[in-house]
């Protein structure tokens, strides 16, 4: 083969150009090409989601913001249910309006648990650093799921802004 190093250089350059173009036009990601932007945004306040099994908890207990160590009910471990935490987290994060379709996607994730007649509460946990430099986090109730429906808990008032889901 004539001059492999030169041909290799060209082939590599073509891969870089194609990969670079795909990444540049697709917000940094075109698998398997990536600029690996994770954690590039440092020191920002964060929101992550978790679920509690609140089947035996009174509804009046479910409307308050609390510390993650002090949540009502018992933890629902997503790993044991085969639900990827990242998918669950992103689904909630990327949902501004809880349409029937989005509620169906969320209910679909927990269908096997809901079919057992259990009630679940999705919390959004917010983390930040105080002015004096101490890290803290606070959990806010977000969506209540039971066998029949998904109810959005808005502005900490379960009775208000309740929308009936599929």
């Amino acid at each position: 083969m004539p001059n492999p190093p030169r041909r290799a250089g060209r082939a590599l350059l073509i891969m870089v150009l194609i990969g670079g173009t795909l990444v540049a036009t697709h917000e940094g990601e075109f698998w398997p090409f990536s600029i690996y932007p994770m954690f590039s945004q440092a020191g920002r306040p964060w929101n992550r989601m978790l679920v509690r099994d609140v089947t035996t908890v009174a509804e009046t207990e479910l409307t308050q913001d609390r510390s993650p160590e002090d949540l009502p009910g018992s933890p629902l471990a997503l790993h044991a249910l085969g639900i990827p935490q990242n998918d669950f987290n992103k689904l909630i994060k990327l949902t501004d309006v809880w349409t029937d379709e989005r509620k169906a996607v969320l209910r679909g994730m927990f269908q096997s648990v809901l079919d057992q007649g259990r009630t679940l509460l999705v919390y959004r946990v917010h983390g930040d650093v105080t002015d004096d430099g101490q890290a803290y986090s606070i959990a806010e109730p977000l969506v209540l799921l039971d066998r029949e429906r998904a109810r959005v808990v808005a502005e900490n008032e379960l009775a208000q802004n309740i929308s009936t889901g599929p």
Binding site: F39, G43, R44, P45, W46, R48, M49, L50, V51, P68, S74, P75, L76, A77, L78, H79, A80, Q85, N86, F88, N89, V125, G127, D128, V129, A135, S137
Partner: peptide, 16 residues
């Protein structure tokens, strides 16, 4: 610290 807090909540959600 912020990342540790964030990822600890992920672990809490995953494993309880």
């Amino acid at each position: 610290w912020l990342w540790i807090g964030e990822k600890s909540i992920d672990a809490y959600s995953k494993f309880g």
